[in-house]
Design a protein around this nucleic acid. Structure first.
Length: 592
RNA sequence: GGGGACGUAGUUCAGUUGGUUAGAACGCCGGCCUGUCACGUCGGAGGUCGCGGGUUCGAGCCCCGUCGUCCCCGCCA
């Protein structure tokens, strides 16, 4: 290249017919080589895409000879002329397929071992190679176009979120990673202190108390895109270190906060190329449980419908339905009646559960045509919709859980939809259906510890009209807590907080913490509440989950650059590792 | 903590009822080829069947243990 005149560096994927006649410099990796003997084609790949380079022995034998050394993933700098391709040689499948670069110089910047897995397979690439191999060589996996796109998408979404908050007057403030263990909720990751042997920092599960302290500190609108850490078992949508969009504001109005978040999410979706409609539907927790059997409903599917009142008395007797018990109809659009075999597959879902399944709606239509018609009407069912009914088993006692049947129906609703999603184009990944779920219960009964525990967290304010229940019937108290849900996935969770010291102390007592314990754990916070704490509230949203859904990915790991396995291991760097005892001694730590 | 699926060539997989020398495709290496674009074509190399033990005349296949990956339940204020 030294003897070639300097040309303007360009990205391969951005070449168009407008560049014809220009001399360009491309730098990137050898994606694929097609050696036709005296004619050799290279697909050069950079982070934008591919461009075809031509080496012609007849025109420049030396250069062609050098190009025969090229192998997959060699790093090259190529100068050449952009030329148009004839219709016969253009490649309509490639964005840059109308042009190619006739090389005038070739610099081999580095060679490469043959990659342990192909980086240049065009279709279904993400599913073809085992994740184990991909993670071990993540730096190679990241070169693949689909991963480049995911990183780019995450960047675009993150920038849009920052802009949206900035435009609303929110201040991004960093909070400590090395903080105090609060053995409430998830397990903490601990960091030993060398200066204070025997003492430990904890990595934050969330900056919850810090953001509340920022409100007390007068920053009335705060946000942070921040890493959080939870030492709990992993799932496809859960990672031990994950990124939250953390938000808090003073003098909050729940509706105003919803609008701010909706606008931010709308901007984030637009950055990913999707327009969503505002405002999101709002559903109380109770409504969500009754209509969907879950606190994170997937609105891409129709709700559950209680059709018990449609059943005439004699039919109810023949079908052995319990009086006053719900009869829940699950409708899955467009799936059609199930085959015998598919119905057989459903039955295990009911086995061992106090549930009766009517999986063959055709039989109901035969025996009770009027009832079937009424049900279809109430469900606004179309021909070809699958309808399955659930009732409590005849012997079942009314459960303590008033939504037990709804929960079962919800599980069935999702299982059916997922089973037939592909065949019938259900659960469209590009259909983004957000909603707010509000008024969660304050407490859940923790049978193991035989005490109440917070459904959200202990800093959550009760609904004003339910404060009286705190002393009389905590199970009935509802919270000013809300979730934002997207396509059946909990995207974010927040609440209006407690800003009065007395109420906060009462909640701690209700959670079984006496005043001494509360002071020992949260004394700094209780103190702070006494110095003029403004009313405040906020929310935290999972950035990884949002980007995962916008990317159409099935796992959070597809949008995390360097993720860990289900056992929280980094296969690439092999972490965690044992450490040398000489590292432990100064920390005052000995292994058992 | 519990349940399920999986582990065979560099990669993705097949491998029958336990039977002789463990196969395919892609990739890799070499030859030929001037319009390919998943180039074609001819030839070649490549295996600790995750690991350990057991049953058996004989184990990739059966049994036990173990390690690893994925999914789900519990858990995740």
């Amino acid at each position: 290249m030294s003897d070639a005149p300097a040309a303007a560096p360009r990205y391969a994927g951005e070449l168009t017919t407008h560049d014809i006649g220009k001399t360009v410099l491309l730098r990137g990796w050898v994606h694929r080589r097609r050696d036709l003997g005296a004619l050799l084609f290279i697909d050069l790949r950079d982070r934008t895409g591919l461009a075809q380079i031509v080496f012609d022995q007849a025109q420049s034998p030396g250069l062609h000879q050098k190009a025969t050394e090229l192998r997959s993933e060699y790093v090259v700098a190529v100068q050449g002329h952009v030329v148009g391709r004839s219709p016969a040689t253009a490649n309509p499948n490639l964005p840059t397929g109308a042009v190619e670069v006739v090389a005038t110089s070739l610099d081999i910047l580095n060679d490469a071992r043959t990659p342990p897995f192909p980086l240049n397979i065009e279709t279904g690439a993400e599913s073809v190679i085992s994740e184990e191999t991909r993670l071990k060589y993540r730096y190679l996996d990241l070169r693949r176009p689909v991963m480049q796109q995911n990183l780019r998408l995450r960047h675009n979404v993150t920038i849009a979120i920052r802009r949206a908050f900035d435009a609303q007057g929110f201040l991004e403030v960093e909070t400590p990673f090395m903080t105090r263990s609060t053995p409430e909720g998830a397990r903490d990751y601990l960091v030993p202190s060398r200066v204070q042997p025997g003492s430990f920092y904890a990595l934050p599960q969330s900056p919850q108390l810090f953001k509340q302290l920022l409100m007390i500190g007068g920053c009335d609108r705060y946000f942070q895109i921040v890493r959080c850490f939870r030492d709990e078992d992993l799932r496809a949508d859960r990672h031990p270190e994950f990124t939250q969009i953390d938000v808090e504001m003073s003098f909050p109005d729940q509706e105003q906060l919803f609008q701010i978040i909706e606008r931010m999410l709308s901007d984030a979706c637009r950055a990913a190329g999707f327009e969503i409609t505002l405002p999101f539907p709002r559903l109380s927790w109770e409504e969500a449980m009754l209509r969907y059997g879950t606190d994170k409903p997937d609105l891409r599917l129709p709700p559950l419908t209680d059709v018990a009142t449609l059943v005439p008395e004699d039919a109810a007797r023949q079908l052995q339905l319990q009086p006053d018990a719900p009869l829940l109809a699950v409708r899955i659009p467009g799936v059609g009646a199930l085959s015998r075999r598919e119905r057989d597959e459903l039955r295990p879902l009911a086995e061992g559960r106090p549930v009766r399944l009517f999986e063959d709606f055709a039989r109901i239509e035969k025996s009770y045509p009027a009832l079937a018609r009424a049900i279809r009407e109430k469900l606004t069912a179309q021909d070809g919709d699958l309808i399955v009914l659930l009732a409590p088993a005849p012997a079942a006692h009314s459960s303590t859980d008033r939504f037990a049947l709804h929960t079962q129906a919800s599980t069935l609703r999702l299982a059916l939809a997922q089973r037939f999603a592909e065949r019938h184009h259900l659960l469209d990944r590009k259909d983004f259906r957000f909603l707010w779920v509000t008024s969660f219960p304050m407490f859940e009964w923790n049978a193991e510890a035989s005490r109440w525990s917070s459904a959200h967290h202990p800093f959550t304010s009760p609904l004003p009209e339910d404060v009286a229940f705190l002393s009389t019937d905590p199970g009935r108290a509802r919270a000013q807590a809300y979730d934002v849900v997207l396509n059946g996935i909990e995207l974010g969770s927040g609440s209006i907080r407690i800003h009065r010291r007395e109420l906060q102390a009462e909640i701690f007592r209700l959670l079984g913490m006496d005043d001494d314990e509360a002071r020992a754990r949260f004394g700094f916070f209780l103190d702070a509440l006494e110095y003029g704490t403004p009313p405040h509230g906020g929310i935290a949203l999972g950035l990884d989950r949002l980007v995962m859904l916008l990317a159409g990915a099935d796992s959070i790991r597809e949008v995390v650059a360097f993720p860990k396995t289900a056992r929280a291991i980094d296969l690439m760097v092999s972490a965690p590792t044992p450490v040398d005892p000489t590292q432990l001694t100064p920390l005052g730590i000995a292994l058992l």
